[in-house]
């Protein structure tokens, strides 16, 4: 594994705001850098995370022509998309911050919520994955609408 610091980054030196990240103390020539995101960064809740496209306010850097995030209605599908989005976002974060216990705990909590949200959604609208079709009497996997077939006024 890669070398771990003796103590959490945020305890080591005067902290920068979330948006600054941490740079290496010795930055050699010929190697480009992206500041390493600090642990303990501020986080949105799951619906704001989905709407903004990131869990982290410090990484929310929209284009000037479309700065405002959309308002995604928290239908059973929207709720499931938001919960799963947090898992995707935290999963990527944990890939490079595997020793962040706080983020790991948050991942655990959202994984439990996502499981509930998925069960709720599948009960109302049918299976999200093929094995979930086993819970219905007939082969419900084929039921409309498919994800790209949004019907106007429909829930999907």
């Amino acid at each position: 594994m890669y070398p771990k610091p003796d103590k959490p980054v945020e305890d080591m030196e005067p902290t920068c705001p979330d948006t600054n990240g941490a740079m290496p103390s010795c930055a050699p020539l010929a190697v480009p850098y992206v500041p390493f995101q600090r642990r303990g960064a501020q986080k949105y809740d799951h619906s704001a995370a989905l709407e903004n496209g990131t869990l982290f306010p410090g990484l929310n850097l929209p284009f000037k022509l479309k700065a405002k995030a959309a308002n995604v209605p928290m239908t059973p599908l929207g709720e499931l998309q938001a919960l799963e989005f947090v898992l995707v976002e935290l999963g990527l974060y944990l890939d490079t911050h595997a020793d962040d216990a706080q983020a790991m705990e948050l991942y655990r909590q959202y994984a439990a919520l996502e499981k509930e949200g998925r069960a709720r959604y599948e009960q109302m609208y049918g299976p999200v994955t093929q094995p979930a079709a086993a819970q219905s009497k007939t082969w419900s996997w084929l039921s409309d609408p498919w994800p790209w077939n949004y019907q106007e006024g429909g829930d999907k």
């Binding site: 496209g53 990131t54 982290f56 929209p62 990527l92 490079t96």
Partner: peptide
């Protein structure tokens, strides 16, 4: 609305690849 979301994902992925380069793809490799 959708394009804003997809664009923001590019920003986050850039940060993650940068974080990843800091853990491994570094002077140590060179």
């Amino acid at each position: 609305d959708v394009i804003r979301f997809l664009r923001e994902r590019e920003v986050v992925h850039f940060q993650r690849f940068g974080d990843g380069k800091r853990t491994r793809g570094s002077e140590k490799e060179l």
